[in-house]
């Protein structure tokens, strides 16, 4: 039971990270019907930027752990958001009217470029978050000893998801995003600046993805320039699982996939851990391509 609960909470933490990345995929897909293949790499940039800022500015030494990490989170969010906006401007906007294939190839190109730029800057080896900053304390939750970091990650990701959900549902800007996702043409007629909505989506998604990268760095302690593609694929699976384009779906899908993977790795085989997510992806696309919370739409002929 102890083992099961440990795996379950671990799965929730990883799932929270998947969900944060998945939100970026799903928001961009919702508005542009484009899979932003470079999104996973923006996540990696979050992890690397976090490491660089953490070590060069010594934020936690100066401000203490809690405040230091908070400032770090905000800085990473801002920087990765700007990167996302640049990505949209350079690689996607010129292809807005092109066939889907062109945008997909451009997205892949952007992914390859971002990943290798990072490799040239930092080298191909794993980078390590300095372990004296990471809290190693454990929390006693009803007799279960959980690492503090794990609890923080679950709480933080859930808090961010709720905040995003409220933002999308309750604010005027959120309504504009929802409108653009349903019908860009109609949204334009209603006076919504669709270009601004797209920009906004490319700021918000990468900001959340960047934080997820930082979380991975803080949780596991080591990061690599290629990790974005594995996390990206898994987060994308999460988005599909929940129903792509659907924001609560991405959250549910992320958490669910994290748990499935953690339990699968523990009780089936750790060596096949990465294959589990891909299997889930393929099965869901075969059985229910609209995902758990998605709706079926007829193709127009």
């Amino acid at each position: 039971m102890e083992e099961f609960l440990q795996q379950l909470t671990n799965g929730l933490a990883v799932g929270g990270i998947y969900a944060l990345i998945a939100l970026g995929y799903t928001m961009v897909y919702g508005v542009l019907k484009l899979i932003n293949f470079a999104h996973g790499d923006l996540f990696t940039y979050g992890a690397y930027l976090g490491l660089t800022l953490l070590t060069s500015l010594a934020l936690t030494d100066r401000l203490g752990f809690a405040l230091g990490v908070l400032v770090l989170v905000l800085m990473v969010m801002g920087l990765v958001a700007v990167l996302g906006a640049i990505l949209e401007r350079v690689a996607y906007r010129p292809l807005r009217e092109s066939p889907r294939l062109s945008a997909v190839v451009s997205a892949l190109g952007a992914s390859i470029f971002l990943q290798n730029a990072l490799m040239l800057l930092y080298g191909a080896r794993f980078q390590v978050y300095p372990d004296h900053i990471l809290p190693t304390a454990t929390l006693n939750v009803f007799g279960l000893y959980l690492p503090l970091m794990r609890v923080l990650i679950v709480l933080a990701s859930v808090a961010m998801m709720i905040a995003l959900y409220l933002f999308i549902q309750k604010t005027r800007i959120g309504a504009a995003i929802r409108a653009a996702a349903i019908d860009q043409g109609a949204a334009r007629l209603m006076g919504i600046d669709v270009n601004r909505v797209i920009l906004l989506v490319f700021l918000m998604g990468p900001a959340l993805g960047g934080v997820a990268g930082l979380m991975v760095g803080l949780y596991y302690g080591q990061i690599n320039f290629t990790m974005g593609w594995v996390y990206g694929m898994k987060a994308f699976t999460a988005a599909i699982l929940g129903g792509i384009g659907n924001i609560p779906g991405a959250m549910v899908g992320g958490l669910l996939l994290g748990v499935i993977e953690a339990l699968g790795a523990a009780y089936i085989s750790i060596a096949w851990k990465d294959a589990i997510a891909f299997l889930v992806l393929i099965l869901i696309l075969i059985v229910r391509p609209t995902g758990l919370l998605g709706e079926r739409v007829a193709d127009k002929i």
């Binding site: 484009l34 899979i35 889907r100 294939l101 997909v104 694929m233 994308f236 599909i240 085989s269 060596a271 096949w272 990465d274 294959a275 891909f278 299997l279 992806l281 393929i282 696309l285 075969i286 391509p289």
Partner: peptide, 28 residues
Amino acid sequence: RPVVHLRGDYLLIVTIGVGEIVRIALVN
């Protein structure tokens, strides 16, 4: 056979998944 009807980018993702599953299977 089960996935070929999927639309463009979905097929792309699935084939990436198949490629990875094959590689992992070989490693294991």
